[in-house]
């Protein structure tokens, strides 16, 4: 009896050990695959040139169009969602702090929005574009992407603000302007690492998402000169160029994947450092 109990427990422990380490190895395999395929294609030209003779067939050139496009798009969307999101999160945690029912319903809606698939945002963004007569462009992409990352931005800032005693700030506020100023400074300094983490998370989501920009931002060989022009993005650079029969073009897809993965890794490491700093305080 007791022997069987021990055997059963060891068996499951063994299974658990295997799955846990398989998950670590899957990550390593993914990273190594990307590195193995991407490194040979990575060169100075790759990073500094736009594709020549069309992105799908041209052997020459690099992915500068996708890098700049992705950066414009993600920075634009992150900036926009911060401008909309920060006030919402503050509003929820300062003014509505006493009506917890309303705040909780807003959180619930935000969580639902966070779960909506990006392709649905893409389709929705596209129909809005048509409605207001906007063409496939960087602007349309930024708007759609903003909608996509807004719930993440607000919820991430919200989680930070929840941990800060806002009541203290409010009572300081009522004591006069000089005190409220210092209180605001303290309050802000406490929140900054958390807010930066929220920005990083949103940026990471924005730069990696493809389905929402597929019809809204389009794809082009050139670097956009205004927000009304279409733009290339790294995820779509992978998606479109991977199917090409030309090896050099495929190389551009691999290089894009490598760069995208490096950006995501950097963001994740940075966010981790910031979170641990925030938690220490």
């Amino acid at each position: 009896m007791n022997k069987w109990k021990k055997i059963e427990e060891s068996f499951f422990k063994f299974l658990m050990l295997i799955t846990t380490y398989s998950i670590i190895s899957v990550l390593l395999i993914i990273l190594l695959t990307i590195l193995y395929k991407g490194l040979p294609s990575l060169s100075f030209e790759m990073l500094t040139q736009i594709p020549k003779d069309g992105y799908y067939f041209g052997r020459e050139g690099g992915i500068l169009n996708a890098i700049t496009g992705s950066l414009y798009l993600s920075l634009g969307a992150t900036f926009l969602s911060l401008i909309i999101g920060l006030p919402v999160a503050l509003f929820m945690n300062v003014h509505l702090v006493k009506c917890s029912k309303i705040v909780n319903s807003i959180r619930f809606i935000l969580d639902l929005l966070w779960g909506v698939p990006s392709i649905v945002y893409g389709a929705f963004g596209f129909s809005v574009m048509i409605l207001i007569g906007l063409k496939t462009s960087l602007l349309a992409g930024i708007i759609t992407m903003t909608l996509l990352i807004l719930p993440i931005m607000i919820r991430a800032i919200d989680e930070v603000l929840r941990t800060v005693p806002i009541g203290l700030y409010e009572s300081a506020l009522s004591l006069g302007s000089t005190r409220s100023e210092t209180a605001f400074k303290i309050f802000f300094r406490q929140c900054i690492p958390g807010i930066v983490t929220a920005i990083l998370l949103s940026f990471g989501r924005a730069i990696g998402d493809a389905a929402s920009v597929l019809f809204t931002t389009g794809y082009t060989d050139y670097i956009p000169r205004s927000i009304m022009e279409p733009a290339a993005t790294l995820p779509l650079s992978i998606f479109f160029q991977l199917g090409s029969p030309v090896p050099e073009v495929k190389g551009r897809a691999y290089a894009s994947a490598l760069i995208l993965t490096i950006i995501i890794l950097l963001i994740s490491i940075l966010a981790r450092i910031l979170t641990s700093k925030f938690n220490k305080k």
């Binding site: 998950i23 899957v26 990550l27 993914i30 990307i34 990471g204 730069i207 990696g208 998402d209 493809a210 389905a211 995820p235 779509l236 992978i238 998606f239 991977l242 897809a253 691999y254 994947a257 995208l260 993965t261 995501i264 890794l265 963001i267 994740s268």
Partner: peptide, 12 residues
């Protein structure tokens, strides 16, 4: 990191 990897990279 696994959660952050873009879906296109998973596709690749």
């Amino acid at each position: 990191i696994l959660a952050g990897i873009p879906s296109v990279v998973y596709g690749l």
